[in-house]
């Protein structure tokens, strides 16, 4: 017979063993997926992937230059649109509207917007930017991604600005500086690392998006940097190629996946590193 203490200890041991198992179960998938992408992706990497455009199935030597460049352009423009709006919006919430009801409402709505299905945003942009204009365009894709970025950047900016001690602002006010100067020269400077992290993480968030691009920037089998027309992107190409039957398409899709995954992981790690270095705490996003 076991004593009550022994039973309790055994129970504890079993329960904790299950938790440990769960943790390794989670880690197992991470290693499995990353390993799979790595093995297939590295095997498919070659210089022509970056220097050539796609060729019809059956012809050797195609690449994804168009998709790499297209993806870079779309993401860059999304950043150019999304970051200023997000940073300014966050500034308003943390500074001018601090403590007011409107700030709380917008803050909560942004949190919700962060998780709104990205495919819905794709349909929305199709209705307002593709159909009326009469053609698919890189711009539409960039705007769709920017819409996903704005709430992410806005919320991080708000949080990061709130961390800046109020006394710092008061010191600047005392010198007679107007509020906008205080924000730009004091608050932004103090929160720069945090805002940068928010931007990095928001780029990491949108760079892997496929659904909002399907109906907006569409796809292009040629090299095109014309933002007024369809622009190829890596993610839409992966969708097309992985669904297709050709094995040359499959290996290119793996290679593209590898590049995207590496890029995102680097951004994420970098963001978290900056945050830890600057604030010494775990990020909340």
């Amino acid at each position: 017979m076991m004593t009550i203490e022994q039973v309790r200890k055994l129970k504890s041991l079993i329960a904790l063993a299950f938790c440990t198992l769960a943790a390794f179960f989670g880690l197992f998938w991470l290693i499995f997926i990353l390993g799979d992408v790595l093995i297939h992706g590295i095997g498919a990497l070659n210089p022509s992937l970056f220097t050539n455009d796609p060729v019809p199935p059956g012809i050797e030597g195609g690449g994804l230059r168009n998709a790499f460049v297209g993806h870079l352009i779309i993401t860059s423009f999304a950043t150019l649109i999304g970051v200023p709006v997000g940073v300014l919006g966050g500034t308003f919430l943390a500074e001018y509207a601090r403590g007011r009801k409107i700030a709380r409402v917008i803050s909560v709505l942004s949190d919700i917007m962060v998780s709104v299905p990205s495919i819905v945003i794709g349909t929305f942009i199709y209705a307002v930017l593709v159909k009326p204009v009469g053609h698919f365009s890189g711009w539409a894709g960039a705007v769709a991604l920017a819409i996903i970025m704005i709430p992410v950047v806005l919320r991080t900016t708000e949080d990061m600005l709130s961390l800046v001690p109020w006394t710092l602002r008061e010191a600047a006010f005392a010198l007679g500086a107007p509020y906008y100067k205080v924000i730009i020269h004091v608050v932004y400077r103090a929160a720069a690392a945090g805002i940068l992290t928010g931007i990095l993480l928001s780029i990491a968030r949108v760079v892997g998006e496929t659904a909002p691009l399907l109906f907006t920037s569409f796809n292009n089998s040629f090299f095109s940097a014309n933002m007024n027309g369809p622009v190829s992107s890596l993610t839409v190409t992966i969708f097309q190629y992985a669904m297709g039957p050709y094995s040359s398409w499959h290996s290119q899709a793996w290679a593209a996946s590898l590049m995207i995954t590496v890029f995102i992981l680097v951004l994420t790690v970098l963001g978290r590193f900056i945050l830890r270095w600057r604030y010494g705490k775990r990020p909340t996003i």
């Binding site: 060729v55 019809p56 199935p57 059956g58 012809i59 352009i73 860059s76 423009f77 150019l80 053609h135 698919f136 890189g138 569409f218 292009n220 089998s221 040629f222 090299f223 095109s224 940097a225 014309n226 933002m227 007024n228 027309g229 369809p230």
Partner: peptide
């Protein structure tokens, strides 16, 4: 980027539709 973007405009035809002739259209386009 704006300069870059506009310099590549033109001489592109955009088409979409059937997957049935895709192998031959893509070969012709190439």
């Amino acid at each position: 980027f704006l300069a870059f973007g506009s310099s590549f405009a033109g001489n592109t035809i955009n088409g979409a539709g059937a997957t049935f002739p895709y192998p031959v259209y893509s070969a012709w386009a190439y």
